[in-house]
């Protein structure tokens, strides 16, 4: 089986500072992979490097077997990559429906296209507030909308940057259910997390990143049980 996403040897920079050093990660269809690491370890940068959002980057990114290293972000999105940023970045002046429409991309052959109706079924909260302005929503609702908006692009792989950050425990549980539902749909999911409990609930595999290097790659359970690694790289 070809991996959906195979990134290897990623070097990334912010300004003059190199943040990623040969970072690599793979994700298959229907697989949830957690990128674990402390703050500043390079999780967000890895996502931006994959999504083509870094000013300066080296390395190889393959998407469904095709080398996409040199493609700009919009071309990646059209091939089925979705990126949900850490700070959600909802368009505050647009309604829920308008926010969704910004994310819309043509349907993908062989799979049912996401429509607002299907998304409202997945995130029932949003259905009650179609015409509400994005800026008038709570943090949890914005997180759901941010994910829903990226699904409108009919992705095959979703990058979720710190999805549980700043959310109430109950909302985090709802989020876990939604992510497992997407997994059942066959989507590949790469998420970065600091909440090990949450990552454990939903992830199949995990990659531990520290100072821009991939230190460990194993099943989620193996990593969660590796007290030494957790202490060294995750400061648990």
């Amino acid at each position: 089986m070809t991996a959906l996403l195979a990134a290897e040897g990623l070097n990334g920079w912010y300004g003059r500072a190199q943040v990623l050093f040969g970072m690599g990660v793979t994700v298959g269809p229907g697989e949830v992979v957690a990128l674990l690491g402390r703050n500043g370890a390079g999780k967000s940068t890895t996502f931006k490097a994959i999504a083509g959002l870094l000013d300066r980057r080296e390395g190889r990114v393959a998407f469904a077997g095709e080398d996409v290293s040199r493609l700009p972000t919009p071309a990646l999105v059209r091939r089925g990559l979705a990126y949900v940023p850490e700070d959600r970045r909802i368009f505050a002046d647009l309604t829920v429906e308008e926010n969704l429409s910004v994310g819309r991309q043509p349907a993908r052959a062989g799979s049912a296209a996401w429509t607002p109706e299907r998304l409202f079924a997945l995130f029932p909260n949003l259905a009650e507030m179609r015409r509400r302005r994005g800026g008038a929503m709570s943090g949890g609702e914005q997180q759901m909308l941010s994910i829903a908006r990226s699904l409108m692009g009919n992705p095959r792989l979703v990058l979720l940057d710190e999805p549980s950050e700043g959310l109430a425990p109950k909302i985090v549980e709802d989020l876990a259910l939604a992510i497992l539902e997407l997994k059942r749909e066959g989507l590949g999911i790469l998420l970065s997390e600091q909440n090990l409990h949450f990552a454990r609930l939903i992830s199949d595999r995990a990659v531990v990143i520290d100072r821009g290097h991939a230190r460990l790659s194993a099943t989620m359970a193996e990593i969660a049980d590796d007290a030494e690694a957790c202490a060294a790289y995750l400061a648990v």
Partner: peptide, 13 residues
């Protein structure tokens, strides 16, 4: 019911 949920996402649950 309103906030903590089932307590699956933190240790001191």
């Amino acid at each position: 019911a309103t906030y903590l949920g089932g307590g699956l996402t933190f240790a001191a649950a």
